[in-house]
Structure formats: structure tokens, C-alpha cells
């Protein structure tokens, strides 16, 4: 037993605070929008130039001029504002975005994050991830705890090219929740049905109390 993608997203949504401006990455982070708690009002930023991102459009109402950073068709809200890419990243680097929730390929106990390339294999690019981790107030990573081959992705140090150095604050995986603290990672919460022994066995990083 562990959390599935939607349960990871639902747990990550608990990190949101009323009034925050937040950027959600592609993949599991996008699902977080479906679980924003009752009474919490957050404004979602899409780095291609929008604040106040709404849900997917109804069939037949898609607008090619209105997409999110994952190039998905979306809608606007009454509070929506549009702006160009340099303005978008000015607010990101300028620390105006309270939190980014991002996916990861690897994360390390010192807060290093790798999520943009596998040398010689996967060459997609960092998009806005390097700017986000360098600029936003708090970085939460959501990911699977281990690879398809069962190897830990929560490491002592990243093996892949970094997206940011010492930038991650909290990690939410299918097995639980960890914080980056001096000396390593601190276990905050175990996922439903996961034992601490199972969690430790799947974690290469140093766990501290």
C-alpha cells in the first residue's frame, strides 16, 4: 500500500495556504489543482504568461490562444491577468510566487533537485524549472519514491544534471512526506499503509530525527 498519483496530489494540496500565488509543474503537480482544500483560495500562475488559471474548457470551447505551461487548453477566471514571458519570470525570480510544486527525477538530502535531463538519452530541457526553484518562496517536490526498477530516487546526492542546488524544502512521494533539514531528510508523515521500515528501505538519503 502507498499513495497513488491522485493521493500524492491531494496530500500536496494540503501545503497550500489561503491567498497564495502558486506555480504547479507538469504531471502530478497539475493534479494538485483538483484538491485545493475548501476555504483556501490560491491563484495559479502559468509561466507562459497567466495568473488565475481556470479548469479545462468544455468540449467545443477550446481556445488555441489559451493554454497552460503543459500546452493544455485551459480557461480563464474573473481575476485572470495575462502578461508576457519576461514579466512572468520577473515575478518568479522576484520572489512573488509563494510556492512551486514540481516533479523530479531525483532529489537529494541536501535539497538538490534533478528534473530536466538524462545525458545522452532524454533531452527535453529545463523549461521554467530552474527559474522557479531559484526564485519562489518554497519548493515542494512530488514524485515516486523509487524508479520502475525499485531504485531509490531519494538520494544522498543526485547523479543527474541539477535543476537547482539546495532548493527543495519538502518532498512528497507515494511513500510519505519528508523535509530537507540540516544533516539530511526528516520523515514528517508516512503514506497510508506504509511502515517506517518500508520507507527507510526505499530511501537512500540520510534520515535524521
Amino acid at each position: 500500500m502507498a499513495w497513488d498519483r491522485n493521493q500524492i496530489a491531494a496530500r500536496a494540496a494540503q501545503e497550500l495556504q489561503d491567498g497564495w500565488y502558486v506555480n504547479l509543474g507538469i504531471g502530478i503537480p497539475t493534479l494538485v489543482a483538483n484538491y485545493i482544500p475548501e476555504g483556501v483560495s490560491v491563484t495559479l500562475q502559468s509561466e507562459n504568461g497567466m495568473l488565475g488559471m481556470g479548469p479545462f474548457p468544455y468540449e467545443g470551447e477550446e481556445d488555441p490562444d489559451l493554454i497552460n505551461a503543459g500546452k493544455q487548453t485551459i480557461t480563464e477566471l474573473p481575476q485572470t491577468a495575462y502578461f508576457d514571458s519576461s514579466q512572468s519570470f520577473a515575478m518568479i525570480r522576484g520572489g512573488k510566487i509563494a510556492m512551486a510544486i514540481l516533479g523530479a527525477m531525483e532529489v537529494a538530502e541536501n535539497g538538490d533537485l534533478a528534473n530536466w535531463m538524462i545525458p545522452g538519452k532524454l533531452v527535453k530541457g529545463m523549461g521554467g524549472a530552474m527559474d522557479l526553484v531559484a526564485g519562489v518562496g518554497r519548493v515542494v517536490v512530488v514524485m515516486d519514491h523509487t524508479s520502475k526498477h525499485g531504485e531509490s530516487k531519494v538520494l544522498k546526492s543526485c547523479t543527474l544534471p541539477l535543476t537547482g542546488k539546495g532548493v527543495v524544502n519538502r518532498i512528497i512521494t507515494n511513500l510519505g512526506v519528508m523535509d530537507v533539514v540540516p544533516g539530511g531528510l526528516k520523515l514528517i508523515e508516512l503514506a497510508d499503509g506504509v511502515t517506517e521500515a518500508e520507507f527507510r528501505a526505499a530511501t537512500e538519503a540520510t534520515l535524521v530525527n
Binding site: 468544455y58 468540449e59 477550446e62 488555441p64 487548453t73 485551459i74
Partner: peptide, 12 residues
């Protein structure tokens, strides 16, 4: 043409 790269919708 304004091609849509990733058409995502919800049902009414």
C-alpha cells in the same frame, strides 16, 4: 491555422 498541441477538455 493556430493548431492546438494538447487538447484537454471537461464534460458538461
Amino acid at each position: 491555422e493556430k493548431r492546438i498541441e494538447n487538447r484537454t477538455t471537461r464534460k458538461k
